[in-house]
């Protein structure tokens, strides 16, 4: 993956610490992501991967340190404003809007003006409709566009949500176990999709499935006990005895 490490980082996580009732889920963690990067985060359960994403999107506030995005400190903004700055996250459990149909799910994601009064205008911009069609094609859900999202199969929900987070063309995509519950074939397709997305967006992926991580062919960051433990390619990390050790006793495929 091209990773132009010159210039300013898009996402700059600076020395953050997050604690829950005294338990430090993240300790003095720093991480940079450059525009167009594809980066994978791995680590055993409780390593702080999901908490890191929670902190970036503002769901959890760091006790110290700050998160910068495009040069702006975002760690004190309300969540919806962080999202509007161009960070979209796909959650671990599929988070689709169950009572709306597939098309409406994507429409809401695509809308550029997200204020209350703007939503009262029934007019749909042609370029937004075009984008919705494009996303339907991208996610392979064109046939299913009138189906209520709650009725979709699990894998379809995952794809719909990926479509939704891609929809507003965010500068940074955060994908939390995007292939959970997918078949091997779906997983391969998802990897392909994500590789296609990188470049246009910076993408940060969390996953446990080493086969999937391999397919992504991207730099890997290992988190352990709330800190960055190692960085490198999957191949080098596999041979690293320390990385082996923190995973010891748990088969990699079943880590979740």
């Amino acid at each position: 993956m091209p990773s132009e490490q010159t210039g300013a980082p898009l996402l700059d996580v600076r020395d953050i610490t997050v604690s829950f009732d005294g338990f430090k889920a993240i300790q003095n963690l720093s991480l940079q992501v450059w525009p167009g990067d594809l980066r994978v985060l791995i680590g055993p359960n409780g390593a702080g991967k999901s908490t890191l994403l929670d902190t970036i999107i503002g769901k959890v506030r760091p006790a110290s340190g700050e998160v910068q995005f495009g040069g702006e400190i975002i760690s004190r903004l309300p969540e919806y404003l962080i999202a509007r700055r161009g960070i979209c996250r796909k959650f671990q459990a599929p988070g689709v809007l169950e009572s709306l149909n597939v098309r409406d799910n994507l429409r809401l994601a695509v809308r550029s003006d997200k204020d209350v009064f703007a939503s009262l205008s029934p007019k749909i911009r042609p370029q937004e409709e075009a984008r919705v069609n494009e996303l339907l094609t991208l996610t392979g859900l064109t046939e299913r566009q009138d189906v209520q999202a709650g009725q979709l199969a699990h894998g379809e929900k995952q794809w719909l949500e990926i479509g939704m987070v891609v929809a507003p063309r965010p500068r940074l995509l955060l994908l939390d176990e995007p292939t959970a519950g997918m078949t091997a074939q779906e997983t391969a397709q998802t990897a392909e999709l994500i590789r296609a997305l990188a470049g246009q967006h910076a993408v940060l992926v969390i996953d446990h499935d080493m086969h999937f991580v391999e397919l992504l062919a991207a730099p890997v960051t290992v988190l352990h006990q709330g800190q960055v433990f190692r960085e490198g390619s999957l191949a080098t990390l596999r041979d690293d005895p320390d990385v082996m050790e923190i995973y010891l006793g748990r088969p990699k495929e079943a880590a979740d």
Partner: peptide
Amino acid sequence: TQSRALEEA
């Protein structure tokens, strides 16, 4: 009562 599990979704 604080719990991360309860805040998922």
